[in-house]
Design a protein around this nucleic acid. Structure first.
Lengths: 218, 218
DNA sequence: AGCAAAACTTGCGTGCACGCAAGTTTGCGC
DNA sequence: GCGCAAACTTGCGTGCACGCAAGTTTTGCT
């Protein structure tokens, strides 16, 4: 299920795609995100500018794709591969945390790049929506008695939670004028992810009609 | 809390905004969504094209705004106004269903308009994200012992569920090649919304540390 | 091998989003 | 009233997204 369809054409496309991603990220890092035109990326990858837009529908998308790569399918795969008895909630959370901590994830420089440009930041955050479909399928497979829309909703909620966590993660440490600084500077990504996903645990439990077991940690 | 800030200037802006919305929707209905350039909208509203983009950041946004108008703040208000003892989950669900059935909501023609253009469809769906912030605040107020991020996540999840429901609603009745047509043609919006939001009930209950009461209907 | 259909690339043209630097209007303190 | 500062509008210029209609490459079929 890794490589489908016929051979040569698909391979070429994949190569082009990869070339574009790589060029986009490299150039953005070298010159700063605002000093890269899509023409530059296209040229660096050896295709016409028009072709760039056959692969990516915005200037930022290629850069983001270079970072996020295949994350969504790996999360879905991890969930699909869960042992039968496992708690869905835990499986999903672990899968996500694991993927966002995997090698190839943004290093300090890349991160800085992302926070620099608002457009890039948004593109990065919106990319989390990509896990929705695959994750919905994976969840649905474990819940096959229930209707498919429950899975869709749960997957969408998970994506939304991840979105919230990432958003917080990229925040440069707010000094709110409300109370003294009760707001913590940030936290590590895994912690943020777990915190954001925790409130959804009851929903996931209920979906697999687990006894409404409450918190086991804490 | 309805009209803030100073008078004349704000009023003018509101008038312009309204004029743009109204012009956008009217023209789109008259000519079809693809035969309206932003120049036309601007002209019809008596402002420069450049100004259009000071109010709306895409061509579709004005049209969508004309439909969705103040929905998000009304949902948030309804939640904020919930009686103290009420179940959060019910309050949220009712508030949403109510707002999406309120007068001023899309009539048949408007709906058709939306489904016609993919770009418009997306804009309409993405508009659901606007309830996130206000709703998060409203939820947070009812949960003030818990940390604010729980509220954020719940609000985002609710928005995501609404998104799923609307997406399904706009679907023109899929004839999937899987089993015979087990897929129903659509369903009424309120039903779709309630179905989509139902899986989140356990999460909302848990957040207000309600006894994990299970389903009362069905 | 040969060939027709399907998939992909490319140049072109149009409309759009948005930064910038004037011009214009409104708000406010005196 | 007066005038300055802040807010808003506008034209301009640049880069971008994407439909369309050739050209080119790949594929499946015979």
């Amino acid at each position: 299920m890794t490589t489908r369809r016929t051979g040569l054409r698909e391979r070429k496309k994949q190569v082009t795609r990869e070339a574009l991603r790589e060029a986009a990220l490299r150039l953005a890092l070298e010159r700063g995100p605002d000093n890269v035109r899509v023409d530059d990326i296209a040229e660096a990858a050896g295709v016409s500018p028009r072709t760039y837009n056959n692969y990516f529908s915005s200037r930022e998308e290629a850069i983001v794709a270079a970072i996020s790569a295949e994350r969504e399918s790996r999360v879905a795969a991890a969930v699909a591969a869960l042992p039968a008895g496992a708690r869905l909630a835990d499986g999903v959370i672990d899968a996500i945390v694991e993927q966002y901590t995997a090698p190839g994830e943004p290093g300090r420089d890349t991160l800085l790049l992302i926070t620099t440009s608002p457009a890039l930041r948004n593109a990065f955050l919106n990319a989390t929506a990509a896990i929705e479909r695959p994750l919905a399928d994976a969840i649905n497979d474990r819940l096959d008695e229930t209707d498919p829309y429950t899975a869709r909703v749960l997957a969408a909620s998970v994506a939304a939670a991840v979105h919230v966590a990432l958003e917080r993660w990229l925040q440069p440490a707010t000094t709110s004028p409300t109370a003294g600084d009760l707001v913590v500077p940030a936290g590590s990504l895994p912690d943020l992810l777990r915190t954001a996903l925790a409130p959804l645990t009851p929903a996931l439990d209920a979906a697999e009609k687990r006894p409404p077991r409450d918190e086991q940690h804490r």
